[in-house]
Amino acid sequence: MSNKRNKDNVQQDSESEEEHDSGSEKDSDFDSDGNYIGDKELQADFEGRNPEDCDFHGIKQLLRQLFLKSNVDLGALAEIIISQNYIGSVVKQCLDNEQGDDDDDDDGSDGVFGITTIINITKRKDEKCIQQIRELLTTLAEENAIDSTKVLIKKILSDDSSHVGLVINERILNIPAAISAPLFSSLQTELEKAVKKNMPYTFQYLVWICKTYSMGDQATEMLYANQEEQPIANEALCSFDVDVTEQADLSQWDYEGGSMTPFRRVVIFEGSKFNNLVRLIKEEVSV
């Protein structure tokens, strides 16, 4: 299977290397999830590739960023993503041939910077980790959604004739949103090919869990961790927000206007809207 190559550059404000010589200073450049938060200049090329076995640990770590401490077997979920590697992409750093030769012993497990894919949680409803996700969605809706949204979620999860796709769009903090455009274009093409082969990727509904942050106690506006997800909210059938402060390692992040409290926004779309969602994503991140 040929690899997909969707490249983008990452650049951050520069700072001299001398200011980062000590181990303690280097450690402080990374948050508790291992994301780089320093201001030293980094330049790298990234590409989208088909998920492989060696990506297991990297994918699992990214899933942990999204699901936090929820009761979901993330290892089993990572295995599903790899097993359907004809759908979706992992983001990895481009390496030249010389560097690749030097790293023959590296299995690449620490080199996954993002994952974009869709899982059919209706077709796979008997698998334990998918059962856990379905139970999680039901519980979160019961605790946080309005009555009409609760009814819709119960309906789409109980009707096996209507296939539901779980969209997973996760990456580390410093990968730019622009990379989402080629990743979703590739996903769009892969889904079309799969449907032509009569594979179960025609979805009546899509579930999308977005990482968001509330800015201040009285804030009504949510900041999206993934910029490209913000414009698609208007296309939703319904959505609801879940405060994950107690699950997050950092309950609040400081910013110029105060602090940000972490949330998850669960969004439900009609499956027929997917192509339009991809169009909106491309428009949002276009330079």
Rank of each mutant, 00 (worst) to 15 (best):
R49E: 14
G48A: 03
D53P: 01
H57K: 15
R64T: 13
F56D: 08
L66Y: 02
D73K: 03
K69N: 14
I59G: 03
K69T: 10
F67N: 05
L62R: 10
D53F: 09
D55K: 06
L63P: 12
R64A: 07
D55P: 01
G75C: 04
G48V: 02
H57C: 08
Q61I: 07
F67G: 07
L62D: 03
F46K: 03
I59F: 01
Q61E: 11
G75F: 09
N50W: 01
K60I: 03
R49D: 08
V72A: 06
L63I: 02
A44N: 13
F56E: 13
K60G: 03
F56S: 14
Q61H: 15
K69E: 12
L63A: 08
R64V: 01
N50D: 00
Q65L: 14
I59A: 05
G58P: 01
R49I: 06
N71M: 01
D55E: 00
L62W: 08
G75T: 04
E52R: 15
R64E: 12
N71D: 15
L74F: 04
Q65E: 12
D73M: 02
S70L: 01
E47C: 14
F46D: 09
N71A: 14
A44W: 05
G58M: 05
N71I: 03
N50G: 01
D45A: 13
